[in-house]
Design a protein around this nucleic acid. Structure first.
Lengths: 196, 196
DNA sequence: TGTACATCAGTGAACGCGCGTTCACTGATGTAC
DNA sequence: TGTACATCAGTGAACGCGCGTTCACTGATGTAC
């Protein structure tokens, strides 16, 4: 039933994956069709055999950035849990880690693109809203079942805001301190204190 | 000593003010030299008599957006305090108000531009970092003197994140609910409950 | 198994357009006598 | 007060460039007999 993908599908996937990294690195506006095709090892002429428009690529790329980033987080969170952390602690420490601070390109697309989202076309905007909901849902899954109904959205906002301000301050002591303070605040409020 | 501004200074100011609104509305990338000059009632040819480059305008505009927005917040916060709110409650309720949700153009430039900031030129990036520090300092001033040293940065992150996610979700029930939840969470944690 | 042909993914040149930037010029403002 | 000239803010045409998009073509892959 699930036959192996055609040559075209493989290429299509490679373009989308390249674009998923490029939009997080350069923003929606900072990414050109020709750049992406070149980075994917192709010439720009073939683009419209794969996508109806640049906007259509942005939609697919944003969706892909979400699933890619979620997969990375799931792996890293599982490793932290294996070392004894609660689900929420593992998620908070991963999301607000220094490695996430510097690797925008492979990180959460909501943190990388949030302030550009309301300015996109309707199609891209709807995918973007879906990504925000997905992030909130991921936080929800890391919370105990008896947590207040809207905690997940509040915690997600806190994490996205802190990561963005830390990046705007720079990947230096100032930015790292903001991340550390936010980790402490979130864990003090929603998790048992660390064993010391 | 402070003589009245020259004709050129008046025009310069008008361009900067126009640009300060435009970057919050359209993002750094969504704003062209010709657009801004036209919106300021001029032709684009005169631009380089006022600014060394587009980037130089972005710096001035971002700075101006910060002071404009701060002035508006100060006024609105004072009105809330006059009605009996604490400084922090007044700030939180103003920043996370539905009017701030929809009026990006006159609102906080950090919330409007945060995810684009790390992608700007060094000059613009430094002004941007300054704006982030200014926002944190404003929160600090609204906190009691005995508040923990890094609370201001954490609260600022929470507010910026919530406003951005609410805008990405849309100015509908979903976005408004996120703002309301964040207001409740911040006030429950840092302020006395409202009188009821 | 081998040849002939159709299909299809990708190439590269070309398009119209809007961008940031430059510059010769105009017309209004201000100063000198 | 009135005229002559210098200064200066803003105009509008032009530039080179890179963008998103189109399209005729090529060369490889796969199918028919």
């Amino acid at each position: 039933m699930d036959r192996e993908p055609s040559r075209k599908q493989v290429t299509h996937d490679r373009i989308v994956e390249t674009a998923a990294r490029a939009i997080r690195r350069g923003g929606f506006a900072g990414v050109g069709v020709a750049d992406i095709m070149k980075e994917a090892g192709l010439t720009h002429g073939g683009f419209y055999a794969h996508f109806a428009s640049r906007d259509a690529l942005l939609c697919e790329a944003l969706e892909r950035a979400g699933t890619d980033s979620a997969a990375r987080v799931v792996t890293a969170v599982a490793a932290r849990q294996a070392r004894g952390a609660s689900a929420l602690r593992a998620l908070v420490e991963q999301y607000l880690s220094e490695s996430h601070l510097v690797s925008t390109e492979n990180g959460c697309p909501v943190a990388a693109l949030a302030s550009e989202m309301p300015r996109q076309s309707r199609e891209v905007g709807q995918v973007a809203a879906g990504r925000v909901r997905g992030l909130i849902a991921a936080v929800q899954r890391a919370l105990p079942a008896d947590a207040a109904g809207d905690s997940a959205a509040v915690i997600a906002s806190q994490m996205v805001g802190a990561l963005q301000l830390a990046r705007a301050l720079g990947p230096n002591a100032e930015g790292k301190a903001l991340l550390a303070a936010t980790r402490r605040a979130l864990l003090a409020q929603h998790d048992a204190p660390p064993d010391r």
